[in-house]
Each structure stands twice: as structure tokens, then as C-alpha cells.
């Protein structure tokens, strides 16, 4: 089990209506590793990410073919409870999206949705999540103040804490640092390094340097296809395919 892949996609196709946004994607994602998805705008990175916790189900007219397995279990199986799937596979978005509530309530949100009412448990889990997201020291004295008073970088770590509070296995991050300044970005990147000890992380990023800095594995997408996957160091120093080379050296199109 320890060495079994955390997530696998096999011959995954995805359609928005008639438009095929993903074509024959097969990839294995190992546990406790960071996998970066890179590729030009519109190549399907976010779409793929959303397939992994069935967020695309929320978009009408979409359709999935092929299979995705989490710990060997088909997540599109009719027996799967989508709410518990999304608890296991958490998501952090490009723009921090705190609710107009207190810092505490933002982090406790997912726990309450999952039916946890016990004050002590809530308090412990919120504290743990804020520590994991490296925000605790900055907010412990203002935990009952509005989350909207936090800086952009703090808000993003708050959203990470919110995702972590429900104790997911997998964390999906869609350009989590693209709206942040370099210092806040570095904090998020350091955090990712920390978090991979306990979580499996998949991150979409437009910054090749960021992918190179934070990930173990990098997957290059182009026009709905997965072109090349490899360990990050190899992919950025000697990619196997010319298409990958052209993209990462900025000689595309």
C-alpha cells in the first residue's frame, strides 16, 4: 500500500459538450510527492485537476471517459460519495477566496460541513491546520477577527488551512501563488515542501521556475494531451521530447 500509487488516470477523455478538452490522459501520481502540471494556457491543466475531485460534475454538459482511481478505487463509480471524495481530495484555487467570516470560521467551515460540532475538536483541528499552513504564529492572537483583514499571502495560506482542516490525502492547487508577491510565493513554496510529508500534492503553475522548485514530478500538457511526464530535474535539464524542450525553453509556436 505504501508504494502503491495514490492516484492513477487511465485513458481519460473529458468533454465540455462536444469539445474534447482532455484526450487519452494516462498518468500515475505517487503518494507524498509533488506533481506539477505545466503547459500553455487552455491546454487542460485546470480541467484535469478538477477531474480528480469531480469538481467538473458541477459544470453542466460535461462528460468523462476512462477511469481515475484514488487508492485503487474508481472515483467515478456510482457508489462513490462525492462529498467524501472532495474531503479526501482538497482544492486550493488561484485567487484566495476567504469567506467574510472570522479566521476561525473560515478554517472550521469544512469541518462543520462534515458534521463536526464538538468545540474542542473544532478548536484543535483549526489550530493544527493553521500550524500546518504556517499561518498560526501570524494569526493566533486575532483568530476571531475577519479573514478579510489578512494580506493576500496570508489569505492564501488560510485557504490552504481550510483545505487541510478536513484532513485530506490529496491537495490540488491551481496556480496557488500566481496572485502573490515573491515573499508570499516563497512561503507557499516552502509550505508545499513541508506538506508533502503528509499529503500528495498536485499543483498547476504557469511558472516553470516554480514547478522546478517545488515538484518531484512534472507533467507537460499541450492541447488536451499529456505530452511528457518525468522527474522534474530530468524534464527541465534534458527533456525527452522536442515539444517539451521547445515549451520550457520558450520557443513555442
Amino acid at each position: 500500500m505504501e508504494n502503491a500509487p495514490k492516484l492513477t488516470a487511465r485513458q481519460l477523455n473529458f468533454y465540455y459538450g462536444k469539445f474534447k478538452a482532455l484526450e487519452e490522459i494516462s498518468i500515475t501520481i505517487n503518494r507524498n510527492q509533488v506533481t506539477a502540471l505545466i503547459g500553455p494556457s487552455g491546454c487542460g491543466k485546470s480541467t484535469f485537476l478538477r477531474c480528480l475531485n469531480r469538481m467538473n460534475d458541477l459544470i453542466p454538459g460535461t462528460r468523462v471517459e476512462g477511469d481515475i482511481r484514488l487508492d485503487g478505487e474508481d472515483i467515478y463509480d456510482s457508489n462513490i460519495d462525492v462529498v467524501s471524495l472532495r474531503r479526501r481530495v482538497g482544492m486550493v484555487f488561484q485567487k484566495p477566496n476567504p469567506f467574510p467570516k472570522t479566521i476561525f470560521e473560515n478554517v472550521a467551515y469544512g469541518l462543520r460541513v462534515n458534521g463536526i460540532k464538538d468545540k474542542k475538536i473544532l478548536k484543535d483541528r483549526v489550530e493544527k491546520a493553521l500550524k500546518q499552513s504556517a499561518l498560526w504564529d501570524e494569526v493566533k492572537n486575532r483568530i476571531n477577527e475577519s479573514a478579510l483583514g489578512l494580506s493576500g499571502g496570508q489569505q492564501q495560506r488560510l485557504c490552504i488551512a481550510r483545505a487541510l482542516a478536513v484532513e485530506p490525502d490529496v491537495l490540488l492547487m491551481d496556480e496557488p501563488a500566481s496572485a502573490l508577491d515573491p515573499i508570499a510565493t516563497q512561503k507557499i513554496e516552502d509550505l508545499i515542501h513541508e506538506l508533502k510529508n503528509n499529503f500528495t500534492i498536485i499543483i498547476v503553475t504557469h511558472s516553470m521556475q516554480q514547478a522546478a522548485r517545488v515538484s518531484d514530478i512534472t507533467a507537460f500538457f499541450y492541447m488536451g494531451k499529456l505530452i511528457e511526464t518525468g522527474d522534474t530535474e530530468t524534464l527541465f535539464t534534458r527533456p525527452a521530447l522536442k515539444q517539451t524542450e521547445d515549451y520550457i525553453t520558450g520557443r513555442f509556436g
Binding site: 516553470m208 522546478a212 527541465f236 535539464t237 527533456p239 517539451t244 524542450e245 520550457i248 525553453t249
Partner: peptide
């Protein structure tokens, strides 16, 4: 921040 062949 060159990559791949450029870096080499």
C-alpha cells in the same frame, strides 16, 4: 532562468 538545452 534558462532551461534544458539552453541551460546546458
Amino acid at each position: 532562468q534558462p532551461m534544458a538545452r539552453d541551460l546546458r
